[in-house]
Computed example of a mutant assay.
Amino acid sequence: MSTERRRVVLFDLFGVIARHQRPGALEKMAARCRTSPEAFATAYWTHRPPYDAGRHTAAAYWTDVLHALSRPADADTIEELRLVDIDSWSRVDERMVAYVRRLRDRARVALLSNIPADHADAFVAAQPWLHDLDHVAFSGRIGAAKPDPAAFRHSVTALHAAPADVLFVDDREENVRAAQAEGMNGHVFTGRDALSAVVDPWLRAVRR
Results as ranks from 00 to 15, higher is better:
residue 4 E to W: 03
residue 5 R to I: 01
residue 6 R to V: 00
residue 7 R to F: 00
residue 8 V to S: 13
residue 12 D to Q: 09
residue 12 D to E: 08
residue 15 G to Q: 11
residue 16 V to A: 07
residue 17 I to N: 12
residue 18 A to K: 12
residue 19 R to F: 00
residue 21 Q to R: 15
residue 22 R to E: 15
residue 22 R to C: 05
residue 30 A to W: 05
residue 30 A to S: 07
residue 32 R to G: 01
residue 36 S to F: 03
residue 42 T to Q: 15
residue 44 Y to C: 08
residue 45 W to F: 15
residue 45 W to S: 14
residue 46 T to E: 12
residue 47 H to K: 10
residue 47 H to M: 05
residue 54 G to F: 03
residue 55 R to A: 12
residue 59 A to L: 02
residue 59 A to Y: 00
residue 61 Y to V: 01
residue 61 Y to S: 06
residue 66 L to R: 09
residue 66 L to F: 04
residue 66 L to V: 04
residue 68 A to V: 01
residue 69 L to P: 08
residue 69 L to K: 13
residue 72 P to M: 09
residue 73 A to Y: 05
residue 74 D to Y: 03
residue 76 D to L: 08
residue 77 T to I: 06
residue 77 T to S: 08
residue 78 I to A: 09
residue 78 I to D: 11
residue 78 I to L: 12
residue 83 L to Y: 00
residue 85 D to E: 13
residue 86 I to N: 09
residue 90 S to R: 14
residue 91 R to V: 03
residue 95 R to I: 00
residue 98 A to V: 05
residue 99 Y to I: 06
residue 100 V to C: 10
residue 101 R to T: 10
residue 101 R to V: 02
residue 104 R to M: 12
residue 105 D to W: 04
residue 108 R to D: 07
residue 114 N to D: 11
residue 117 A to R: 14
residue 118 D to F: 01
residue 120 A to G: 10
residue 120 A to P: 01
residue 126 A to H: 06
residue 129 W to K: 12
residue 136 V to G: 09
residue 137 A to G: 10
residue 137 A to Y: 02
residue 140 G to H: 04
residue 141 R to D: 11
residue 141 R to A: 11
residue 141 R to V: 04
residue 141 R to H: 13
residue 142 I to S: 13
residue 144 A to E: 11
residue 145 A to T: 10
residue 146 K to A: 08
residue 150 A to H: 06
residue 151 A to T: 06
residue 151 A to W: 05
residue 152 F to Y: 15
residue 155 S to E: 10
residue 155 S to L: 10
residue 167 L to K: 11
residue 168 F to R: 12
residue 169 V to E: 12
residue 171 D to I: 04
residue 171 D to N: 14
residue 173 E to Y: 00
residue 174 E to Q: 14
residue 174 E to D: 13
residue 175 N to S: 10
residue 177 R to H: 09
residue 177 R to A: 14
residue 181 A to M: 05
residue 182 E to M: 13
residue 183 G to W: 07
residue 184 M to I: 04
residue 190 T to L: 05
residue 190 T to W: 02
residue 196 S to G: 10
residue 197 A to F: 01
residue 197 A to K: 13
residue 201 P to Y: 11
residue 203 L to C: 07
residue 206 V to L: 14
